[in-house]
Every structure is written in C-alpha cells, then in structure tokens.
Computed example of a mutant assay.
Amino acid sequence: MIELSEVIAELRRELDEAMRAGAGHRLRFELGPVEVEASVAVERSGGADAKVRFWVLDAGADARIARSETHRISLTLHPKITGQSGPPEIAGPETERER
C-alpha cells in the first residue's frame, strides 16, 4: 500500500520531469486537468493525535486488506505553476509566432 500523498507527490515529480524533458522542443502541450482514480483503504488511528489516512491499494494487496472495507475515489487536479498565469506547458517555452 502507498499513502495517497505519495501518489500525488510522484505524479508531481513525473509532470516536472515531462516539463524538463520537453524544453527546447517545437511541439508543445498545455497540461489540462489531471484525473486520478484509485482504490483506497481508509485507516483511522486513535489517541491524542488521531488522524485518518488514505492508502492506495496496489495489485498485490494482501488478504488482510482484501477483507477490509475499501473505497474508490476520483480526484481531478488542476495543475498550476507558482507565479505563472494560464495552464502549465509540458514542452518548453513558447516560441515566436507559435500560436
């Protein structure tokens, strides 16, 4: 199992890498909404610092998780780059007369 926050962090790293890899290329893509769907197990810990955690299930989830209640969630993320207006681009800077 992987924490949902780790899944989102890895997605962020992958999109950053796509932006770096596309730098200098003529063909560009604007990044639109990113949809993520996952099966999750919800765990609530007790005690003074109680919190709820969402665990994303992988294909090899063990029998213990298979017997617990799971939920399916869908997230739509709208990527933004700090200080930039408009959608991020995953293929380098805009060139003159491109659009």
Rank of each mutant, 00 (worst) to 15 (best):
R53C: 06
I81T: 11
A50M: 09
L15P: 03
R99Q: 12
W55A: 01
E35P: 02
P79V: 00
E30M: 09
R97Q: 11
I2C: 03
S68V: 01
E98M: 13
A21M: 11
I8F: 00
I8C: 02
Q84M: 15
L11F: 02
I65S: 10
I73S: 00
E6V: 02
F54G: 00
E98T: 08
E14P: 01
A66G: 05
L57K: 11
G86D: 03
G60N: 14
H78I: 03
A66R: 10
F54W: 15
P88S: 12
K51L: 04
H25A: 09
A48M: 13
P88H: 06
I90T: 15
R99E: 14
G83I: 07
A21F: 05
E3T: 04
S39T: 14
V56N: 08
H25V: 04
P93K: 10
V42G: 05
V7D: 02
A23F: 08
K51R: 15
R97F: 07
F54S: 10
D58N: 11
A18H: 12
R53S: 13
L11M: 01
G32I: 04
V42P: 10
R72M: 05
S74W: 00
V56D: 06
A50P: 15
R67G: 06
G46A: 14
D58F: 07
E37H: 05
Q84P: 03
A9N: 01
S45Q: 11
V36D: 02
R26S: 07
H25Q: 11
V52E: 15
R20V: 11
V40H: 00
E98P: 08
E43D: 13
I65W: 14
M1I: 06
E6K: 06
I81G: 03
R26P: 09
K80I: 00
A41L: 15
R26C: 07
D62P: 13
P88Q: 07
G86F: 06
P93N: 09
T76N: 03
E43I: 15
S5I: 04
D62S: 13
R64V: 07
G83S: 05
V42D: 05
T82H: 13
M1G: 05
V40P: 01
V42C: 11
W55V: 09
H78L: 06
H25M: 11
P87I: 03
E3S: 03
S74C: 06
P87A: 13
K80F: 00
L75P: 03
E3R: 08
E98A: 14
R28N: 11
R64I: 03
A48P: 10
G46D: 15
V36A: 03
V52Q: 14
Q84W: 10
E30S: 13
V7N: 01
A61F: 09
